[in-house]
Nucleic acid binder design. Structure first.
Lengths: 186, 186
DNA sequence: TATTGTTATACTCTATAACTATA
DNA sequence: TATAGTTATAGAGTATAACAATA
């Protein structure tokens, strides 16, 4: 057959566009980090919670969920597990009894330090192809993009549910009954 | 209370590590791209299929699934929809009747060009903070990381399911009955 | 027996509505 | 009435087993 006419998307685009490279490498980095968390038994969003509590304790679940772009309904389960492992404490807020105050336990703080070590090793592995000067260059460029795109420092936008709905169907109504009494029912 | 002792992960790490910045910006870029695909009604993996067929037609579903790291069972549904929209054709392979040959239809090729325009606009938007020289620098650094990490050019590693299994529970056995006769039952 | 396409099934994550207790 | 936490439920993505047709 004839020599294939190389359907390149543009000039000098071997390996994909820069935006594609960012998405590709970013997904790889996120997956590797999740793998490296294996020994801790924590998921990336749980690490986000521990980190947030590490330098801003006493937050309510709702405030934390908003800050981390996690749904409140999901936050419940994530905190349930962290509390069950003794890493996070739910304390009553005496001024507003609807709210919890979330705090890191000593063990939680210890775990957070361990996560920090994992994160540093992970960063080293991801950037291994570059020398110190190049890492600084890359970091500076990425910071400018992040700022220009309006990204919140330190908050990973968990892959918002976007694409699809092929047939354009509107969302259906749903049930829900709610049952259990809340925490401190006297 | 005393002044909080700023729990920074390391020196000069405002905004997170470089690996975190890559994950953050990468997720943002992927989400935005999925949004920009809205008018086409295509999902990112479907775009991957169209692109692959654009310069390597005649592939079987299985071979394509392997190349794009999509599960064969998912590939069925993705191709079902592309075929239903008249963008892709399933042709019988006369040499091995188990296989299909996947081909882009003229309309599929047209759609692929449209996607290319969307992708270029997307790339421009993501890199808007940088000038031409800086984009070249960034691209060169990213290509070196991608190569060092062993990433396949042009293939997005869709966010492999990694983290969690909090209780370390092993996977359960499952059923499955299978029914319908395959395509060309004479 | 092995492979391709397919279906069934299960688990996770995302997203929304509804409910309780409290303000 | 509004808000925080919670539960139920629906939908999409990921993953695996099982099956029919074919090799």
């Amino acid at each position: 057959m004839k020599k294939d006419e190389e359907e390149r998307p543009g000039p000098g685009r071997e390996g994909g566009s820069t935006a594609f490279l960012l998405a590709q490498i970013g997904a790889h980095a996120a997956s590797r980090f999740a793998e490296n968390l294996g020994p801790t038994g924590l998921s990336p969003p749980q690490v986000g919670i521990l980190r947030a509590l590490g330098h801003g304790a006493g937050s309510s679940q709702h405030a934390l969920a908003k800050r981390l772009s996690i749904l409140p309904s999901r936050m419940v389960l994530l905190v349930d597990e962290l509390e069950g492992r003794g890493l996070v404490e739910r304390r009553d807020n005496p001024e507003d009894r609807r709210l919890y105050e979330l705090h890191l336990s000593p063990r939680g703080r210890q775990t957070l330090e361990s996560v920090g070590r994992i994160a540093r090793a992970h960063d080293e592995a991801v950037c291994a192809a570059l020398d110190e000067r190049e890492r600084g260059q890359l970091r500076a460029l990425l910071l400018r993009i992040a700022e220009h795109q309006g990204l919140t420092p330190g908050v990973h936008p968990g892959m918002r549910h976007v694409g699809k709905t092929a047939s354009g169907a509107p969302p259906l109504p749903s049930g829900g009954k709610g049952r259990r009494p809340k925490k401190g029912t006297p």
